[in-house]
Design a protein around this nucleic acid. Structure first.
Length: 588
RNA sequence: CGGGGUGUAGCUUAGCCUGGUAGAGCGCCUGGUUUGGGACCAGGAGGUCGCAGGUUCGAAUCCUGUCGCCCCGACCA
């Protein structure tokens, strides 16, 4: 039992100017966190209590799923990363940590980095400690602080530079075993989000810089989310926009027959899809081939899309380059022989085709069949370009961005889009890390094999804010029972009355006996202030004791989420409060 | 890193265009009156106007630079 006057809950009437969204304002107004700097937050007592609830529930669900808790350093020797598979990409978001001593010049390369995640640490550990199939599978997890030098921290805890994450790493002998571990984690995640009272849906996702073979993100639907989820309720399809695909191109689509010979025509000053659509050329965007030049691991490559489609850059990750970026005009001209606006992938038209690492075509260009593309000669385009006859395609793939309304790949029904907050992510990694770090085991035939890995993360601190974003009203936070900093708030309107204080203690003890955590607002404040603060901090169950009610022999019981207030005779208060606590627990 | 915005008391801000004593509300302290949905009265403390230069008799205000923060974009739990 805590007494508000002795505790520390600095609430604010007004939102700080730098908070923009509801959950961020409430985090600060309700006295959960305070900002130290961009993306850095102190957890005040109330915020810490919620974090502890979340970590405990997370721990329980991970252990229930068979994962084993450990704790790794937050400060990593840089060499672990330098020798890993993603140093080039990962270093961009890592903080370096070297001696701060005056006069000690930091070396060109960092000695230590602050850990953004722990594959590079756990895999060498497992390599050293586990060598037999008898010791597999294993799944290790920790709940710890992560550091990422986000280019743009945002919305309080939503995207912070320092945040709390549960991260888990599974090691299996076989691919089937790894799939099983993956599904065990997916089930554990679902149980976790259910228990904390959050709505989070699993969606198919891109594997990004993690690499690996497949993955799901857990998304909390919210307008302020950073991600677009493409979905269709009936078929159950749900995917991050970066990963989403559609049934736009029929699987049995035959290759289009050539419509005529290649013809070059002059298009002076026409440099965009839109310009070619306009008169006098009047080529619809869906009859054009768009040719983009990228640089992957130092070599240029081409991507061909329909003129009406947008590239989903993330999908280029499937091509296997460690890092890639759009090419600059200076890089394009020597290879293609033309500047952007007149580029194409027709055989024999580029100046230096062999310099290309490949020509990757989105499969939707097959819908174009015969179309128009740049001639690799400034001011000229080609018509009657036939996909199979003329384009020098290395490989077809899915590179376009899906649009709402396109057919669901499963059912053909129109796809929809909504925003979401990514609170968790699970990856089936395969053997990418185990091969590089040499994490192998010996099977019962004395054969060595790389372990098959999976990795799994839940943004605990981000989840905290997502819960607020999902559960608030005009007056403040509405905490789910399981994660509320306290479950019962006793609003003691007249703390100076000894009998009121005595009753508050008695009822508080009764609520605790029933399994709730109790805070008594015993401050010398006016009732209005206490009610406003009670709504703001969002404790699920409020019991009000006032001198006025006591004269009539009643106290009041109110759920934060509901409007109605129950008047309860003092004689029954203990029993009814205990019953309400049990009700809250049952719902959680 | 590109684009936009913003820095004045613990918080929210006015003043800046048009240079001349830095003002309010909340919060805080003292006293009093109040007491069921952010009370009222009286008194009080609290500011190097982000920082550094410059222009000027004089700069919160104009100029230059710099730093922090916020928002939009690319990335992520």
């Amino acid at each position: 039992m805590k007494f508000w006057s002795q505790y520390f809950i600095p609430t604010l009437k007004e939102s700080p100017a730098d908070a923009e969204i509801a959950s961020h304002k409430l985090l600060i107004r309700a006295g959960l966190v305070r900002k130290l700097g961009g993306g850095l937050y102190t957890y005040l007592p109330l915020g810490l209590r919620v974090m502890q609830k979340l970590t405990q529930i997370c721990r329980e669900e991970m252990e229930r799923a068979g994962a084993i808790e450990l704790q790794m350093p937050l400060l990593h020797p840089a060499e672990n990363w330098v020798h890993g598979p993603r140093w080039a990409a990962a270093r961009e978001i890592m903080f370096r940590a070297d001696s701060a001593g005056e006069g000690k010049r930091s070396p060109r390369e960092p000695e230590y980095v602050l850990g953004p995640t722990h594959e590079e640490i756990i895999t060498p550990l497992v390599k050293a400690e586990i060598t037999s199939y008898r010791d597999l599978p294993k799944n290790f997890f920790q709940i710890a602080t992560k550091f990422r030098n986000e280019i743009r921290p945002r919305f309080g805890l939503m995207r912070a530079r320092e945040f709390v994450m549960m991260d888990a790493y599974s090691f299996d002998a076989t691919d089937e075993g790894s799939v099983k571990s993956y599904h065990a984690m997916k089930a554990a995640y679902e149980a976790f989000f259910r228990r904390i009272g959050a709505t989070a849906i699993a969606v198919e996702a891109d594997t990004g810089v993690m690499g690996g073979s497949f993955s799901h993100e857990f998304m909390v639907p919210a307008e302020i989310g950073d991600d677009d989820v493409i979905y269709n309720e009936e078929s159950g399809y749900a995917a991050n926009r970066e990963k989403a695909t559609s049934g736009l191109v029929p699987k049995d689509l035959p290759d289009a027959a050539p419509a005529g010979g290649l013809e070059e025509f002059a298009t002076p000053g026409v440099l965009t899809i839109a310009a070619l659509e306009a008169a006098p050329h009047s080529v619809p965007a869906d009859r054009q081939f768009k040719t983009l030049v990228y640089v992957g691991d130092g070599k240029p490559f081409l991507v061909i899309l329909r003129g009406c489609d947008e590239l989903e850059e993330t999908k280029l990750g499937s091509l296997g380059f460690t890092v890639f970026r759009p090419a600059t005009p200076e890089e394009i001209e020597p290879v293609m022989g033309a500047r952007p606006g007149s580029l194409g992938a027709v055989r024999g038209t580029a100046k230096n085709f062999p310099a290309l690492a490949g020509v990757f075509a989105d499969q939707a260009i097959r819908l174009v069949g015969n179309g128009v593309t740049g001639a690799n000669k400034d001011g000229f385009h080609l018509r009657n370009v036939n996909v199979s006859r003329d384009l020098a395609v290395t490989k077809f793939g899915d590179f376009r961005r899906v649009r709402p309304g396109e057919p669901d790949p499963r059912s053909g029904a129109p796809l929809k889009v909504r925003r979401g907050i990514e609170v968790g992510h699970i990856f089936k990694l395969g053997t990418k890390y185990s091969e590089i770090f040499g994490a192998a085991y010996t099977d019962d035939q004395k054969q060595n094999h790389p372990m098959v890995m999976g990795c799994y993360g839940i943004g605990i601190s981000r989840t905290l804010q997502a819960i607020i974003e999902q559960g608030h009203d005009a007056d403040g936070i509405v905490w789910p029972w399981a994660v509320a900093p306290f479950q019962v708030l006793i609003c003691l309107l007249d703390p100076q009355l000894p009998e009121a204080m005595e009753l508050a203690r008695t009822l508080g003890a009764a609520a605790e006996a029933a399994g709730a955590e109790v805070i008594i607002d015993d401050r010398a404040e006016r009732p209005g202030v206490k009610f406003k603060d009670a709504d703001l901090i969002g404790v699920p169950l409020r019991l009000t004791i006032g001198g006025r009610g006591l004269k009539d022999g009643i106290v009041e019981l109110k759920w934060r989420a509901a409007k109605d207030i129950a008047k309860v005779p003092v004689a029954e208060a203990e029993a009814q409060l205990a019953a309400a606590v049990r009700e809250g627990q049952a719902k959680a």
